[in-house]
């Protein structure tokens, strides 16, 4: 084991892992974090805590992560390179680790243009690949990015994101390979709606033997309505929502659409469980966290394994 991460232990044991996500509040109310996290408590192995997602200011990822940790859950510290330079990121990584956070996800982050501080200067001292590399070096070599020794290095289980659907498609496997080369231990993918295309992507991943080198968690998002599906298809960059998904949702009454959306998510998980190289699922129920437990249960991923028994 490289770290004390619960996620690492579950993945190493060969179990399918389940993660979900929790966006910290836009204000100083710790109970908001607890409310959201409590919905996920027994049904996921770890919870991603987003970092100023969509470039909107929120409670810091590590602070919300500590609140989640205090609930006996395992936070995954998300970190974007948009808001901090390498000094700030390393100090936050050490700080988070010293408070018990041992898993993180390295991202570049949405452009400030999309957020509520469009006039901000974005930092991008590092990109996501360089962040992965830095965190791995801190752990394995005990060195800061600048080269000096760290007194008690943070041992982070390092994650990265992969979007199999963004263009150019033929570059996406190479990009994943690059993140693995930089030191990614696990990867969480963008929401998967086009399963055929994802399976093609995974074939290419396995052809290169990358499935042996990284744990890949497939991204699942339940659709609340046909409207949401259309919005994601047309408005969210890098999202691939096939027309069949929209048609299927439109095929039932508006009141039944949420249930249909959950059904689609569960079926996707069941199909993807069989795909070589898929080691678990990352369920992103956008402002719909309360549905995560039933998706996990219906997909046959419950109960979650207890780490002590691994």
């Amino acid at each position: 084991m490289k770290t004390e991460s619960k996620l690492e232990r579950i993945l190493a044991s060969g179990n399918l892992a389940v993660t979900s996500e929790c966006g910290p509040p836009r204000g100083a109310r710790p109970e908001k974090v607890r409310e959201k996290a409590a919905l996920l408590k027994d049904h996921v192995d770890a919870v991603n805590v987003t970092d100023n997602q969509t470039a909107m200011v929120r409670m810091s990822s590590w602070a919300a992560g500590v609140i989640i940790k205090q609930m006996g859950m395992d936070p995954i510290l998300q970190m974007v390179t948009r808001d901090r330079n390498r000094l700030a990121m390393q100090s936050d990584i050490i700080g988070a680790y010293s408070l018990g956070i041992n898993t993180m996800l390295c991202l570049s982050g949405d452009h400030p243009k999309f957020g509520d501080h469009a006039t901000a200067k974005s930092v991008y001292d590092l990109d996501s690949v360089q962040l992965v590399r830095m965190v791995q070096k801190m752990r394995d070599e005990g060195k800061f990015q600048g080269g000096a020794d760290i007194d008690c290095p943070p041992k982070m289980f390092v994650g990265a994101a992969s979007n199999p659907f963004a263009e150019p498609f033929d570059l996406r496997v190479s990009r994943l390979a690059k993140k693995i080369k930089a030191g990614a231990d696990f990867v969480q993918t963008q929401c998967i709606f086009n399963l055929d295309k994802f399976e093609k992507f995974m074939e290419m991943v396995c052809d290169r033997g990358l499935n042996e080198k990284v744990y890949l968690l497939a991204g699942i998002t339940p659709m609340k309505s046909a409207g949401m599906a259309k919005y994601m298809k047309n408005k969210v960059p890098g999202m691939d929502v096939p027309d069949e998904v929209i048609k299927r949702l439109e095929g039932v009454s508006k009141a039944e659409q949420p249930e249909e959306g959950i059904k689609i998510a569960v079926e996707s998980i069941q199909r993807l469980k069989e795909v070589k190289g898929v080691h678990g699922f990352h369920i992103m129920a956008i402002e719909w966290e309360e549905k995560v437990p039933q998706i996990v249960e219906k997909a046959g991923l419950f109960p979650r394994p207890a780490v002590e028994n691994l």
């Binding site: 990109d127 996501s128 963004a166 890098g238």
Partner: peptide
């Protein structure tokens, strides 16, 4: 690159255009 990324495109690329 809008984010001055050194190691490849972010996930926001759409039809060869930037997410911004």
């Amino acid at each position: 690159c809008s984010k001055s990324l050194f190691n490849g495109p972010c996930g926001g690329t759409c039809s060869g255009k930037c997410e911004i």
